[in-house]
């Protein structure tokens, strides 16, 4: 192998590795959407966790919840801030979607932006969609 070939190969590699940056340079970037608080969530001042924690850790929390509900038969969550919640995505008023009424504006906007496709809704239903 010649020196030129090695250098050429390295150059191609570096270009390829940095491709996300190139991609962002040629496409326009959008500001991250803010999840909109609608329905009862607008009045309620407190969620399960502080906004920052919720944003960073809601997936871990939901993971914990589903294990608690399915495996330990515990369905009520007494949050650190003293509030009670029904550990459910969509059943009842005290569930995630019971409070955050609009799934599209609350869950989907961020998930779409970050290209996350959680499989929650393969099984769980959005009460609004059913009607």
């Amino acid at each position: 192998m010649t020196k030129n070939m090695i250098m050429g190969g390295l150059a191609v590699f570096v270009l390829a590795v940095l491709s996300p940056f190139w991609f962002n340079m040629v496409t326009t970037t959008q500001a991250a959407p803010e999840p909109e608080l609608l329905g009862p969530a607008k009045q309620a001042k407190k969620c399960v966790l502080e906004t920052y924690d919720m944003r960073a850790n809601h997936m871990s929390l939901l993971d914990e919840w589903r294990d608690a509900v399915v495996r330990d038969a515990d369905r009520i969550y007494v949050a650190a801030n003293g509030n009670f919640f029904n550990m459910s995505l969509s059943t009842g008023e005290n569930s995630c979607l019971g409070c955050h009424a609009d799934k599209a504006k609350f869950c989907d906007s961020c998930h779409t932006y970050t290209s996350v496709d959680p499989y929650c809704w393969d099984c769980h239903t959005n009460p609004k969609e059913i009607e």
């Binding site: 871990s60 929390l61 914990e64 038969a73 515990d74 369905r75 009520i76 969550y77 007494v78 949050a79």
Partner: peptide
């Protein structure tokens, strides 16, 4: 790291059954 972050988010929180259960 992700696994470790699991616990700290809900340190004082509790899970319980409904009183009607």
């Amino acid at each position: 790291n992700f696994a470790a972050s699991d616990s700290h988010g809900s340190a004082a929180a509790e899970k319980a059954k409904s009183p009607d259960a």
